[in-house]
């Protein structure tokens, strides 16, 4: 699946946050967008996911305009891992979080279970399934979120500040895991203010500055 933006403009209130932004993420590619805090990285991801209205320009997922009725049917092909994971104190197990990835699709119970366990296995998190999601460490939560995206059947993963709150070992583990997923054909788009994250990998790197990509 290819993700493209063409002269994208997105406003937050009356302020333009993204200005005339164009880029493309071909199938199986990985891209890291770096930028300082508040430069519009999260706004960009939320726009790509159809969570924010586009003021001008367009975003296409495999030639389907984001927000169109055709896109609604395949929107689960693009998944996101929000910054620091979702964190609230309400009880939910890691297994339930991963199963949520399949919530938008009608599946037989057995098939759903197979998908969920396969996703957990892919991120080496089978042993975490019964744990309360909110009591997991930052790295464990990241892996569960990735498993949720895989269970969703996503072909493009959008990662918002994936390194935040992770120690060196967890970062290394996350980096390897993403590399593996990328080899399996999953496209990756990460936004971060961290200059070191993924710097030793062959990801295409762009910088978001004043609402424009450099």
């Amino acid at each position: 699946m290819e993700l493209t933006t063409h002269h994208l403009v997105v406003h937050q209130g009356k302020t333009p946050v993204l200005k005339n932004l164009s880029f493309s993420l071909p199938a199986g590619h990985s891209l890291v967008i770096r930028g300082t805090n508040g430069c519009g990285k999260t706004t960009l991801l939320r726009s790509l996911l159809g969570l924010l209205p586009v003021s001008h320009g367009e975003i296409r997922l495999n030639h389907m305009i984001i927000g169109s009725p055709e896109w609604l049917k395949i929107r689960h092909k693009m998944a996101w891992v929000p910054q620091e994971g979702i964190l609230h104190r309400f009880p939910i197990s890691a297994l339930e979080v991963v199963t949520i990835g399949t919530a938008g699709r009608k599946l037989r119970a057995k098939h759903r279970k197979d998908i969920v366990f396969s996703a957990l296995e892919s991120v080496e998190a089978l042993h975490l399934q019964q744990r309360c999601y909110h009591r997991l460490s930052g790295g464990e939560r990241q892996r569960i979120s990735l498993a949720r995206c895989l269970a969703q059947g996503a072909e493009i993963l959008l990662l918002d500040e994936p390194g935040t709150g992770l120690d060196q070992e967890s970062r290394h583990r996350l980096s390897n895991l993403l590399l593996q997923l990328n080899k399996q054909g999953v496209s990756l788009l990460a936004v971060t203010h961290d200059q070191e994250l993924f710097s030793n990998q062959s990801w295409e790197t762009r910088v978001l500055k004043e609402g424009q990509l450099c």
Binding site: R46, L49, G50, L51, R75, H76, M78, A79, W80, P82, I86, F90, I92, E96, V97, T99, I100, G101, T102, A103, G104, R105, R148, Q152
Partner: peptide, 19 residues
């Protein structure tokens, strides 16, 4: 149950997963 759990977990995640 699943759709409600998704919504309870996070409304944006629920939407992007197709709920």
């Amino acid at each position: 149950d699943l759709q409600i759990s998704a919504l309870i977990f996070d409304q944006d995640v629920a939407y992007t997963s197709g709920v």
